[in-house]
């Protein structure tokens, strides 16, 4: 076995460990299938009604359905909770050991967070593609199925956008982790974060459905880059220059949040108190 860099080693170790939790992945996949179906049914009813009233909708029905399945498949991507291991380290004082390693603490935690997130996303996403993209068309529910990307360009832009989305989401999780440095318990901050992340990422309702006046603000806020921007690129709702603007926003927010997180963590570590023992 060759030697890795410290951060890659931490990432790999966490990734491999998380990949062992197969029953958790299966359980959450089944839940997401159920919620996905309900949402798609609701969308179908909504679009039927809209067709009768002649109003124009920001996404086509097929785009909205695909957006919904993608959101369900990528649920583990949402930065809605602190990394449980890092939060536990804070609560028990094991954080001291992380400070004893000759590495940057932010980067170390970021690598662990990313390892956990990607290990959680992969099995759930693959199962969801299989269920909503392959099984649904096979049983004749083509109109409710997860459609392939709208084209080769969209597919490549989506791959790029999704990669940045993971980096961005980890940066948000890091901010939540760092909050725990001062609160010592992740429950409170998690409770506050969940509704905010659900609404602003587009997981609750695709962001284009919100009123016109809120659209611009919703597009440029950081959480759009977690789910809304990649999903719209995938379904072809965001193309050409707009897609590139979306990806640039994602990159900009990732960079900003990482820098902010690093500053905040080093401030928190100067005031660290490790009690007991």
């Amino acid at each position: 076995m060759s030697a890795y860099s410290p951060y890659l080693a931490a990432f790999t170790s966490r990734f491999l460990l998380m990949m062992q939790y197969r029953s958790a992945a299966l359980a959450s996949f089944l839940t997401q299938c159920w919620f996905g179906l309900v949402r798609v049914m609701v969308l179908a009813a909504f679009y039927k009604g809209a067709a009768q009233s002649d109003s124009t909708l920001p996404l086509s029905f097929a785009q909205a359905v695909t957006y919904t399945w993608l959101a369900q498949g990528l649920l583990a991507l949402l930065p809605w909770a602190a990394d449980p291991d890092i939060a536990a380290a804070m609560r028990t004082g094991a954080v001291g050991h992380d400070r004893l390693r000759p590495v940057d603490t932010y980067n170390l935690w970021y690598a662990c967070t990313a390892g956990r997130m990607i290990a959680r996303i992969l099995p759930r996403l693959l199962l969801m593609v299989l269920a909503a993209g392959v099984v649904l068309p096979l049983i004749g529910k083509e109109e409710l199925a997860w459609a392939p990307p709208s084209g080769t360009a969209a597919a490549m832009l989506f791959a790029l956008s999704l990669t940045v989305a993971v980096a961005l989401s980890c940066a948000v999780v890091m901010l939540i982790n760092i909050t725990v440095v001062s609160t010592l318990n992740e429950r409170g901050v998690n409770t506050l974060v969940v509704p905010v992340v659900f609404i602003l990422s587009g997981a609750l309702l695709p962001l284009p459905f919100y009123p016109d006046m809120a659209r611009l603000a919703l597009f440029i806020q950081p959480l759009a880059g977690v789910l809304d921007i990649p999903s719209r690129i995938y379904s072809g709702a965001l193309t050409g220059p707009m897609a590139w603007i979306g990806i640039s926003l994602q990159v900009l927010w990732t960079f900003t949040l990482v820098v902010a997180g690093k500053k905040w963590l080093s401030y928190g570590m100067q005031r660290l108190e490790v009690q007991g023992g």
Partner: peptide, 15 residues
């Protein structure tokens, strides 16, 4: 042993 290997990488030790 895996913990030791992880420490090897974290401390950037020569294999």
């Amino acid at each position: 042993i895996e913990g030791f290997d992880l420490l090897r990488d974290i401390y950037r030790l020569d294999p």
